[in-house]
């Protein structure tokens, strides 16, 4: 997971400086090298800062001790953990099925078959069929389309706003920092589910409003984590060296602060994808999601609860599926977290 997140932040936000950005881990020496041409001679002009820097050798990403090597080593240790691999494979399956549900089922999620009503799970119908004879496995996969996309929208909103607020308050400090953190505090006072309900009340029902509501609800955690990381990273020697070398704040931010503070944010992102899925499922369970016949995971579970006595699988199997997804995400983020400690 980490491997995929790191290049994303650097790659999308500073494509031109990609090679320089990735070198950020290579400590202070890289800062002088990555600085714009005008700042390059600074190393000689300011012996106090430059002299100490030049004595260190540059470490490229692919060399021992470089960023990619470290990540690859992490990936190797994680790849031998069966639980972790299983979780990653399951999440990969769910994500692929969300974008191409047709790969795993040949049926139509909306075609009814009155003769096959309420069939119990079998090889023909993995999850059984519902009250109209629709194949539940197929409906579940097409439900992934809505739920996973909603979770990604929510996560995108939370990361973009949270990262922006966290970086702003971490870098600027002072009054602005205090103000932003008070706003986050206030949002903490309103439970996530209730804030989401208020937003859904105002925006109306459907997958996108639910996604926006949940995204705003889980945003404060990202703002806090980013702020804490930015505060930690911005006092590190190589950031100060880069500033002393003449790099502007935006440049330092993109090449040094963000790449080095995104680890905990990435772990939080994995964890909060699970949280977002739970909230999205809860909101659609309560009846605020997509309109029928489309069905999100929560809607499917909710629809089945009228048939609990005669056909418990209609509700319980989709519920287990959701739990498995969230559990896998929790396990992935926990394993990475323990590894980083």
């Amino acid at each position: 997971m980490t491997t995929s997140v790191v290049p994303e932040t650097t790659g999308t936000e500073a494509p031109a400086a990609a090679s320089a950005a990735a070198a950020a881990a290579a400590a202070a020496a890289a800062a002088a090298a990555a600085a714009p041409a005008t700042a390059a001679p600074v190393a000689g002009a300011k012996p106090g800062a430059g002299g100490a820097l030049l004595s260190e050798r540059l470490i490229a990403d692919s060399e021992p001790g470089g960023r990619w090597v470290g990540l690859r080593a992490t990936a190797r240790t994680l790849a031998v953990k069966p639980g972790f691999v299983l979780a990653v494979l399951f999440i990969a399956f769910v994500v692929v099925s969300a974008f191409a549900p047709g790969l795993f089922t040949s049926r139509d999620p909306y075609s009814t078959a009155p003769a096959e009503r309420m069939d119990s799970p079998s090889l023909n119908h993995l999850f059984g069929t519902d009250e109209l004879g629709r194949d539940l496995w197929t409906r579940m996969l097409y439900g992934s389309q809505l739920t996973i996309k909603a979770a990604l929208i929510a996560l995108g909103i939370a990361i973009v706003i949270g990262l922006a607020l966290g970086v702003l308050s971490g870098l600027s400090g002072g009054f602005f920092d205090a103000l932003l953190m008070r706003i986050v505090d206030v949002q903490l006072a309103i439970p996530v589910l209730l804030l989401s309900l208020a937003i859904v009340t105002a925006l109306g029902f459907g997958t996108v409003p639910v996604a926006i509501a949940v995204g705003v609800g889980i945003m404060p955690a990202f703002a806090r984590t980013t702020r804490a990381e930015v505060l930690r990273v911005k006092t590190l020697p190589f950031v100060e060296a880069s500033r002393a070398g003449g790099a502007s704040w935006p440049r330092v931010l993109l090449t040094h602060v963000l790449p080095n503070s995104c680890g905990p944010v990435a772990v939080l992102a994995v964890l909060d994808t699970g949280v977002a899925i739970l909230y999205i499922a809860s909101l659609s369970f309560l009846g605020f999601g997509a309109a029928p016949p489309q069905a999100e995971w929560g809607t499917l579970i909710s629809a089945g609860r009228n048939y609990l006595v005669t056909a418990p699988w209609v509700s319980l199997l989709p519920g287990l599926f959701v739990a498995a997804v969230v559990l896998s995400l929790n396990h992935i983020s926990k394993t990475i977290q323990e590894r980083e400690r």
């Binding site: 699970g274 739970l278 499922a281 369970f285 579970i301 319980l316 519920g319 959701v322 969230v326």
Partner: peptide, 9 residues
């Protein structure tokens, strides 16, 4: 990890 409504059901 379990949705609350699932536990309830």
């Amino acid at each position: 990890s379990f949705p609350q409504f699932f536990i309830a059901l």
